[in-house]
């Protein structure tokens, strides 16, 4: 049962991500990105990681993509940008990267199938276990993540100011 669900979710993920990348309008791409993230959340749930799934939806799709949308709306890209994208997105630009991506895909597949295959356990890892780990062995990493977010905050504030070049920083 999970297997079938997994296949469906996987197909949605891939299709949605491809669609996300090939749109001309930034907002459309972001919506497709949200779909991708939601499908991934389903897959996380199937893998027995409900906490991760919830986080994915709340933080990733709910905050990060929303941030993206805000900035895109602020930049006020209009019809001219759509035409520009069309100009830029010529099929002939796709050949090189396609080849490279195919090669990389092939190599990594070989790497995966070389190693012994196994199944997932199917048991759910509850949020309680995750929490215990976080406050136990990974406490330092949590603090460092806090540093990182603080740095991100300060950086974003500084970079977002108007007339950055005129004012003394």
């Amino acid at each position: 049962m999970e297997y079938i669900l997994f296949i469906i979710a996987a197909a949605i993920t891939i299709g949605s991500s491809i669609l996300a990348l090939t749109r001309l309008n930034a907002s459309h791409a972001l919506i497709y990105l949200v779909v991708t993230l939601l499908a991934l959340a389903v897959i996380f749930f199937l893998l027995g990681a409900p906490f991760a799934a919830a986080l994915q939806i709340v933080v990733y799709a709910g905050a990060i993509v929303v941030l993206f949308l805000f900035v895109v709306m602020m930049l006020n890209l209009g019809k001219s940008s759509v035409e520009r994208e069309q100009r830029w997105l010529q099929p002939r630009m796709w050949y090189g990267p396609a080849v490279l991506s195919a090669i990389l895909f092939a190599i990594l597949c070989v790497a995966i199938y070389d190693s012994p295959s196994s199944d997932t356990t199917g048991t759910m890892v509850s949020p309680k276990e995750v929490g215990t780990e976080l406050f136990g062995p990974y406490i330092i990493a949590v603090e460092l993540a806090g540093f990182l977010l603080l740095a991100g905050l300060v950086g974003a504030y500084h970079l977002g100011r108007r007339y950055l070049s005129d004012r003394r920083s």
Binding site: I103, V110, A111, D114
Partner: peptide, 17 residues
């Protein structure tokens, strides 16, 4: 980015094969 990807492919090749 292209260069990085090519490098990544090369290293992956090396590691795998």
């Amino acid at each position: 980015v292209l260069n990085m990807s090519v490098g990544l492919a090369a290293i992956a090749l090396l590691v795998v094969f």
